[in-house]
């Protein structure tokens, strides 16, 4: 699905990531940890083509990111659901429309999908808030709305950047359950987080691998966790 080969990324000054080689296979469940500023967000951005590596190769669904045009990237994004740390929405449109946005922009909005949307909104527990505007939502509701938007196209991969960053433990448990359910449906999941409790909670239910960023490398963390 997503392959990185000797990838390096540097922001102007120094190198943030170097010599990263990794393959996310279909149906896998990964956590990505590391101290703040270690490059978790950068790594995820490399995985969905928002950043182009400064060295090495990133292949998404078999295609080299460097060879992709803007439209190819757009089409590829329909297969990768992304949940940002600070989820952004179209603030003038109700939550339900925001969740349905990927359908709207890809021209897939039809009656079947409308039913799916209701189901999905129920699944993330937002049916009561469907007509609210995004700025009216709480942090947890925004995270769940972002997750619903990320999965509405039934993508092959879901990348979540600190999805439990600003919500309480109970809510992050719920969000984790949603992601685990998606993984059981065969989706590839990658969650960047520094919440070790969350990782422990997940490991009891799903075969999750933990990747740790340290010293600019991405390494598979031991079983110690």
């Amino acid at each position: 699905m997503i392959e990185l080969e000797n990838v390096a990324y540097s922001y102007g000054g120094g190198e943030l990531l170097s010599d990263v080689s990794l393959e996310l296979s279909s149906g896998s469940f990964h956590f990505l940890t590391g101290p703040s500023g270690a490059g978790k967000t950068t790594f995820l951005k490399l995985c969905y083509g928002a950043l182009i590596p400064t060295a090495g190769q990133v292949r998404l669904f078999g295609g080299d990111v460097r060879d992709m045009g803007r439209d190819d990237i757009a089409l590829m994004r329909r297969r990768i659901g992304v949940v940002h740390q600070d989820c952004q929405f179209l603030d003038h449109m109700p939550v339900a429309d925001n969740v349905a946005l990927p359908l709207m922009v890809s021209g897939h909005e039809d009656a079947d999908q409308i039913e799916n949307l209701r189901e999905l909104m129920g699944w993330v527990g937002l049916n009561a808030r469907a007509d609210a505007l995004p700025p009216e939502l709480s942090g947890g509701e925004r995270q769940r709305a972002a997750l619903a938007r990320a999965v509405i196209m039934s993508p092959d991969v879901v990348l979540a950047d600190e999805p439990t960053g600003n919500i309480d433990w109970e809510m992050s448990q719920r969000l984790l359950q949603l992601l685990i359910e998606l993984n059981r449906m065969g989706k590839t999941i990658m969650i960047a987080t520094h919440d070790l409790n969350l990782i422990r909670a997940a490991k009891s239910q799903v075969e999750a691998r933990v990747l740790r960023i340290s010293q600019r490398r991405v390494q598979l963390a031991g079983a110690a966790l």
Binding site: A74, R77, Q88, L101, S106
Partner: peptide, 16 residues
């Protein structure tokens, strides 16, 4: 800019 960023994130093409 935010609207455009959101649209790009969810897979909207430039033409759209």
């Amino acid at each position: 800019a935010q609207v455009i960023a959101v649209l790009r994130l969810v897979g909207a093409r430039d033409a759209y």
